[in-house]
Design a protein around this nucleic acid. Structure first.
Length: 483
DNA sequence: ATGTTC
């Protein structure tokens, strides 16, 4: 088949394609891309180059993987999964991304579309006021150095202790919102200074807060949906997409600098400087891991404070408490992170960059609420086209290091999108279609237009057919807050 | 993604 690359790509199944190891490529393992033929053809050539480069990194296991929402990224493709032996493999900031623990959160309500529609405009205004958004935006939470360091080690647990959210929220967060091995002494003063006033803020770019409705007739697995608190019937839910803001960005920058020097010392060579890495067991590798975990916990805390603000906004608009409105957390997943997990090969450091963990039913690392149905997976689409709730599978654990896709993936550059539509025009069009948008930046809004993204339904179909996640429900936007 | 070229 003719693709956007000269590379040899073999079809393994209708949803799996493989770039084999060749003599001169330096690949240690094959690269595998999950995509239907249509999705594969729409991928930029950078994906194929980058996933091949990743397959050359020391200690990589089985396959360098790319999910169907894959696109070109810093060093590693976005949508990439790469697992390394903890004993002789590497860790790479480029395999996690600049926005450490960027992730998705979904909150349910007992409200229906009919309840919300008459007050939608006011609801969006309240949310926009209570959840600061935009580049450089600061939040309402006042922290000093010791308390911010506590956020770094305790994550969402810190928030709950401080009254931002409910104790039972924690069971619904990946790693209970608190990852071990975070060491604030490995974070630079500069990162700390950038992050200390940003807790509870949304950020910019593709980050958003969305009020959504469970599409009529679009619940695919009623049992799993019910177990997660989705009852259908035009039910309203709230989705949040954001990460660790300037803090995680600075941690990534700091350690990319450290790793560029460390690579020479350890004699590691890479195909692309952006793949800068160090042995996981080295001092530099462990320091980055400890700092990355600080940023990961800060991102869980960020989404937790935002959840508190969302609950307050709903309570103010509907005149009932968030508890009375049934605003339980459905789940919170990381999609930019590296974690040590156990597989057939032993303990592996799994890098997921624009990829979601997707453990199947019965997995020992899943808490009780999800033992039966598998881990929830939240995939955000573009603000115009909708999103999906899915669950992980045993097959993902066997085939993709327990991983699946994370969103729809861009097909058009930000610059091109901005040239194609004006933000004000897009906002107007969306309003006519029943989606109320509040945005800090109109040019930023234009960059996120639906036509700049792949069709999420097609991408989701790929992972569902490949069996690495199962569709639970489709969620359609009616209100969006953008940075 | 990002005090959007410290």
């Amino acid at each position: 088949m003719k693709l956007n690359t000269d590379m040899l790509i073999n079809r393994i199944t209708d949803e799996i394609w493989e770039i084999p190891v060749s003599e001169k490529s330096g690949m240690l393992v094959p690269a595998r891309i999950y995509a239907t033929e249509t999705v594969l053809r729409s991928m930029d050539s950078g994906v194929f180059d980058q996933v091949t480069n990743v397959a050359c990194l020391p200690g990589i296991q089985r396959y360098a993987l790319c999910m169907p929402d894959g696109h070109w990224g810093y060093g590693f493709p976005i949508g990439g999964v790469a697992a390394f032996d903890v004993r002789n493999g590497v860790i790479s900031p480029g395999g996690v991304g600049y926005d450490i623990n960027c992730g998705m959160r979904l909150i349910r309500t007992d409200l229906t579309l009919d309840d919300v529609q008459p007050r939608l405009e006011r609801l969006m205004t309240e949310l926009f006021r209570r959840v600061p958004a935009g580049v450089g935006a600061g939040g309402f939470v006042r922290l000093n150095r010791p308390s911010f360091e506590e956020v770094m080690t305790k994550g969402a647990r810190w928030c709950v202790e401080e009254g931002y959210g409910w104790h039972r929220d924690l069971a619904k967060i990946e790693e209970q919102g608190c990852i071990g091995g975070a060491d604030p002494s490995k974070v630079t003063d500069r990162a700390l200074a950038r992050g200390i006033n940003q807790l509870g803020t949304l950020g910019s770019g593709n980050h958003y807060l969305e009020v959504q409705v469970v599409s009529n007739g679009r619940v695919f697995d009623p049992d799993a949906a019910a177990a997660l608190g989705i009852t259908g019937h035009d039910q309203i839910v709230v989705m949040v997409h954001c990460g660790s803001r300037g803090f995680g960005h600075q941690v990534a920058s700091d350690y990319l600098n450290v790793f560029e020097k460390a690579m020479r010392r350890y004699g590691v060579s890479v195909k692309d400087q952006q793949l800068a890495c160090a042995p996981f067991r080295s001092e530099e590798g462990q320091d980055y891991f400890a700092a990355m975990n600080c940023a990961a916990n800060t991102a869980f805390a960020n989404r937790q404070v935002i959840t508190h603000q969302i609950r307050e906004a709903f309570a103010a608009v509907f005149g009932q408490s968030a508890e009375e409105l049934g605003m339980e957390l459905i789940y919170d997943v990381a999609h930019n992170i590296a974690k040590v997990e156990r597989y057939a090969e032993g303990d592996l450091l799994v890098h997921r960059k624009g990829s979601t963990r997707a453990f199947g039913p019965g997995h020992p690392d899943l808490p009780e609420p999800f033992r039966k149905i598998g881990q929830p997976v939240i995939c955000g689409g573009s603000m115009e086209t909708g999103s999906y709730l899915l669950v992980g599978t045993d097959r993902a654990v066997r085939d993709t290091f327990g991983s699946t896709m994370h969103g729809s993936g861009r097909t058009m550059s930000r610059a091109q999108a901005k040239k194609s539509v004006r933000g004000e025009q897009l906002q107007q069009q969306m309003k006519q279609r029943g989606i109320v948008v509040k945005a800090v930046s109109m040019s930023g809004l234009a960059e996120e237009a639906g036509f700049a993204y792949k069709n999420i339904s097609e991408v989701v179909e790929t992972v569902d057919r490949a069996g690495i996640t199962k569709k639970v429900a489709e969620l359609r936007p009616i209100g969006n807050i953008k940075g």
